[in-house]
Write a protein that binds this DNA or RNA. Structure first.
Lengths: 200, 200, 200, 200
DNA sequence: CATGAATGAGACTTCATTCAT
DNA sequence: CATGAATGAAGTCTCATTCAT
């Protein structure tokens, strides 16, 4: 009778996850009650448990789903054999694309970073480590090849770049004045050249 | 015999607030139980209510106390009659000084920004507005006077600068490799001149 | 299959309210714990909050429910166009009927009169005012028409009548020696004619 | 050095008890916090424990103090060898005198009648029994001697008389339009002769 | 798939009471 | 006598979760 039950169910799950992500992003995971998610989805709280094991597993799916897609994009960039400056540009562009597509998940990820300590969310720590390796490695290559300034503390520079990009998720709204690509371009321009007109 | 009773009571409150801020910063406000704060302070949960009305009022005092000190510093900078570039530099330095002194409060402030919607925390919204006015005004003056690049979207630039500075509270630990002044100097260098060696 | 879901839910609420009223009447509102109500109802304390917002809202529903029914009865009496003596008799009879049907609510109402000061229970004050108007107006008409003694202070007489009737709720038990109608008759006899054999 | 330490201390106790009685009467015993009593007395909550063992012992002293004085008055009346009607009149007058002098204690006594079940307050039960014996005995003598109507249920009549008198404590304010004696006279008139002009 | 009622653990908070000063 | 700080028990309420229908 039903054509693709698995697909239909998966679609319903995704809808519910998107709803949950929206509420988590707005209020924070802890401050969100299962009932609020259910209200936003138009069902009763108990009914969510037909689809998900627990509130935590919703969070889990949201975060791991986002990170999977993120790393698909990042890995493509890192495997492309670009120079350090081009790699950094591509990573920034890719990051804003992910923010555009997974805004809520990114916001949650930023806010609930402390979850990385729990076994269930160990993949967050893994991701953070790969993340640091990718960005800091790119910066180091850039310094070595003369593309980036050599007088900077690279750990500070890494954090500067990282935060600069990802915190944008906390204010970015799709459909605003600029699309994700334009924002990426402006950010890159500031990041690479600074905002000052006179360079020492 | 007793030296300063008023000071003694104020000191105890401040100690407890510092303890609470530490726990809030580590775990998040919602995920923190009153009992955890009390444990960290070496008293029983109920005893906190001799000093404070509620968990929320602890948060309130932490945030408003921080913002009061922040604005004392900012107002001094803004009243000094400096040029835009010097103003921006002074604001960044002052910000890192505040991060150094109120690390926990800053981290809480970053994470619990959504509180601004509640009447009790309306002063957060006020502060954010004054904040935007101060920074964005400085950027505009800088563009007008030729100190900052004119080809940037100023709202984006404002967010870039703002986030860049404040997110540092999430990883800054006093007593680390660099002191707050050194970090400010490096951040300013990246912000103003960019990380690239070749400027277009 | 299911007969009347709305009725079923309303019935459950009413059962729980009746249970709560019983405990409140026995021990007083303040001295009653939510757990005692739940125990009496055979559920856990937390489960009450599926049906009611708070302990106070249970009290609210008990009192307002009672007063609504009371005023339905009183208004019918007052609208019947009876003479003052017949009106007073009908009010007393109606009062004892309400005591019979809402014994617990009446006892609570007597004991927790001080609630009238709180905004949420402002309707208690309203009811008390209407109450006074109804009874004292009847007494005044009776004096004017010669049915009641003219030598009495009417405010005192009003209180005498009022207290006389309603305090009965504190000892009345349905199924006792006399039914409500018989008690009303004896009270009316004492009230109207006194307990003395020789009248001056 | 101090002239009468015992008397001074006793005076302070009495002041505090009067304050406590006032608050208990207004809000009810359970709804009153020790801190509210202390506030009303202008001291801190802990300081009350220099004078009293516990909140309950304050209540105890208030109630037993009142009952002691009440029974001194009642016993004098009952020992005077009066006829039933004169006895009833004297008891009513004495009761209003006690209400006048111990208004708060009487109000508390009315409201917290359920305490009679606790061992510590067993004297309340004793007092109630003596009370019932005194009043109902007087009524019975009156019926036997033809002073009171024989067609009434005496238990109902007893309750009618009892409640009628004592509930007055809930609204009586000293210094009002009528003094206690005048109120007693009017109450007696209604009680004995009724409020109707035509007697059957 | 969803509902409605309930569970049970745990949260925040209150408050009578204690005690060193 | 009084204070100020703390205790510890208990109370109201929340909320993730379960389950029969």
């Amino acid at each position: 009778m039903t054509s693709q039950p698995r697909t239909a169910a998966a679609t319903r799950r995704d809808e519910l996850l998107a709803t949950a992500a929206q509420v988590f992003a707005r209020q924070g995971y802890d401050a969100t009650t299962v009932r609020e998610i259910a209200d936003a989805a138009g069902i009763l709280a108990g009914s969510l448990y037909y689809h998900f094991d627990s509130k935590e597993s919703m969070l889990d799916e949201i975060l791991s789903g986002f990170l999977n897609e993120l790393w698909t994009g990042y890995d493509a960039v890192l495997a492309a054999g670009l120079g350090p400056r081009e790699t950094l540009e591509a990573l920034v562009v890719e990051s804003f694309r992910e923010i555009d597509r997974h805004r809520d998940a990114v916001a949650i990820y930023q806010r609930e970073r402390h979850l990385a300590g729990q076994p269930r969310f160990g993949y967050l720590t893994d991701s953070m480590n790969r993340f640091e390796a990718a960005w800091q490695g790119t910066l180091e290559r850039g310094v070595a090849e003369g593309a980036f300034r050599a007088d900077l503390d690279l750990r500070l520079a890494y954090r500067f770049v990282r935060d600069t990009v990802w915190v944008a998720a906390s204010w970015y709204r799709p459909g605003g004045r600029h699309d994700a690509g334009e924002i990426a371009r402006q950010y890159l321009s500031m990041l690479l050249d600074g905002i000052s007109t006179t360079h020492q």
